[in-house]
Design a protein around this nucleic acid. Structure first.
Lengths: 155, 155
DNA sequence: GACAATTAAATTGCACGCAATATAAATGCA
DNA sequence: TGCATTTATATTGCGTGCAATTTAATTGTC
């Protein structure tokens, strides 16, 4: 008695939405962004802007390119995003004197101060979750992302 | 000799980018979209449009709301997206006679025919990967998405 | 049957993402 | 030095995502 399914079984259909790993990433990413939005709105940040702040809080004064490399974003996304953040007063953009091609992005005093408020964010977003489990998942996904960077499909 | 880390250790910083599970989802989702783009371009589809096709290939003639529920997208995203797909000739949008509030989305002949070409896509994207492993990850992420739908942070 | 409440889409406005192209500065090399 | 190549950022154009609002049809209630 075989337990495998024949070709006409819809569960075998390779195009079923539920079978696509890519869709789980897509759905999760969108849903996560929606959950962060109201929390970050209190800091006057969108989710991608929050990521930029995380990068700058680690090391201030990085170039646009360095930030983009970290977040896997190009200048087409970052330049206007950073300009909006500059208008909001979180940071300043200035040409590097050493190499005029570069633009260094530096936090303002209020941008630095915002870090204190942001310290609550991870706690709020993971409240009630099993932290060990989340960390295991994070490590798994980190290796997936690493493979994706190399151009491997993986989804 | 203690192995735990003190508060000043940067690895303990809750705001480190590398520690954010949310970022792994964000990065993976963006990178996946970028990998699919050239493959789907041959079918004249963007990645979100491909997802709509997956939904319609499963069941044709669904309402905008039903498609949105499946993909976790609202009409603000779907209406213009579906209009573009209609222009491209993949589908048609028509008011439901039974309930004039609804718009039914139906595949055209070419939209249905496109399914044959799309059959290669999952294979192309997962080539060289351990399918068992990908499926295990898919199931894990499906449960994460399920929790996120309920509003639980989880990231 | 009137009419408030609900439901389904569309619209508006704004912020991403990203490919392709443009611009300008630095580098390399004959 | 002169000039092609490379590197860093900006710009353009298009397609999402999503909150908030609007419009129109249906349902529920008296």
């Amino acid at each position: 008695m075989r337990t495998s399914l024949n070709a006409s079984d819809p569960r075998e259909d390779p195009l079923r939405l539920d079978r696509q790993l890519c869709f789980q990433f897509y759905a999760a990413s969108n849903l996560i962004g929606r959950l962060y939005a109201p929390v970050l709105a209190r800091l006057n940040l969108t989710y991608p802007q929050y990521l930029v702040m995380l990068v700058l809080w680690e090391e201030d004064g990085q170039s646009v390119g360095a930030i983009g490399k970290r977040l896997h974003l190009d200048t087409g996304t970052l330049t206007p995003l950073l300009k909006r953040m500059e208008t909001l007063g979180h940071l300043v953009r200035q040409r590097d004197r050493e190499d005029e091609r570069r633009v260094r992005v530096s936090l303002t005093a209020s941008g630095k101060a915002l870090r204190e408020e942001a310290l609550h964010v991870p706690e709020i977003m993971t409240r009630g979750q099993d932290l060990e489990e989340l960390d295991a998942l994070r490590r798994t996904l980190a290796s997936v992302v690493e493979a994706l960077k190399g151009g491997k499909a993986q989804a």
